[in-house]
Design a protein around this nucleic acid. Sequence first.
DNA 1: CGATATATAGACCGATCGGTCCTTAAATCG
DNA 2: CGATTTAAGGACCGATCGGTCTATATATCG
Lengths: 198, 198
Amino acid sequence: MQLQRGRPRSFAVDTAVERAMGVFWSRGYHATSLPDLLRATKLSRGSLYAAFGDKHSLFLLALDRYIADALTRMESELAPGRDPVDGLRAYLTGYVERTRGTNGRRGCLLVATAMELAGQDAEVGRRIAGFFKAMEIKVADALSRAKAAGRLANGVEPSSAARILVCFVEGLRVVAKPGPTPTTSQATVDALIDRFIS
Amino acid sequence: MQLQRGRPRSFAVDTAVERAMGVFWSRGYHATSLPDLLRATKLSRGSLYAAFGDKHSLFLLALDRYIADALTRMESELAPGRDPVDGLRAYLTGYVERTRGTNGRRGCLLVATAMELAGQDAEVGRRIAGFFKAMEIKVADALSRAKAAGRLANGVEPSSAARILVCFVEGLRVVAKPGPTPTTSQATVDALIDRFIS
DNA sequence: CGATATATAGACCGATCGGTCCTTAAATCG
DNA sequence: CGATTTAAGGACCGATCGGTCTATATATCG
């Protein structure tokens, strides 16, 4: 970003990335065309390529933004200062809310990208794997704090339970994609929590 | 399919569908091109279009085949005649095996299709939703038999437990996509079973 | 054999893909 | 003011997309 003499940038890079993220999120990488991105970002072809290089680079920025948002949300839900059981409940319930109605139909950019690109695109693969790992660590940490407080059911081991929860929430996003089952999801989450919390 | 006078069909429709399935499975729908399909099926353009109509129709046949295979496998794993707990273990362990090494990288056609197309393509959406429903019913049935045999942990309800297991296995396929974690998956499955079986 | 049916090979189609480039308008600087 | 910089708009590019069609070769029938 250089000194701005002459006409200043009429668009904020951040909001352009955010809008692009929305398109990739709704359609997936391959099904998103340049015209789609231009419409969403309100940029001209020239501006978009000057600012972001190419479609793939812009996608990586959008993916990074999505990941950062998800991690930020998790950090507040599972904050060390908070009651770990409340945090875990909030964390899981958040996924239920995100699979309701229109949101459910939209799915999850991370899951869609994992399935669409992670196998072929190393750059993407690293980001996705890193996210799942980070998520697992945060959940495991919350479970450890719950265990220390004597709130875990007998025989529950934080690290393996964390892996179970991570698989579960990602699976929720898959199963909810074709047709969300609004009422049952929360009950399913409650039943799951019931197996781990005493 | 009409009477075959003259040169007989030099290819079997079934094996062509199976080969096409393999390509869609590895690359996803949008990223699979006609040349990809021709190479895999060893058909000419003309033959492929004469036999299947278009790319989308061929994809639906491939998806149906994948679903039928999955249901067949489940029916043997969770057969009513078999010990339900053994069946559930075999069912879950099957997913662990399918996420190892190269297989894991390949992912799952159903999950990938759910994320890539189920939101936009009603025909596909119905198939995916139907599969998840069928799977849930089969698992719930096995859990019911386990419960009747007094093999379930206290407080476990078959129908909600089935929803949990379905989400878990589909999530396994997502998390395993970017980089399989071979050794831990079985341990994770064991830890999960441990929460439900007494 | 000749008639018929099937599949191959590949030319061909319009549309769209991602990406480059050039002109013009607008805004800020000295 | 004029010089400079930024972005918009859109023409334009080669490549590829899914899909059609026309030979041509081959096999099976009567």
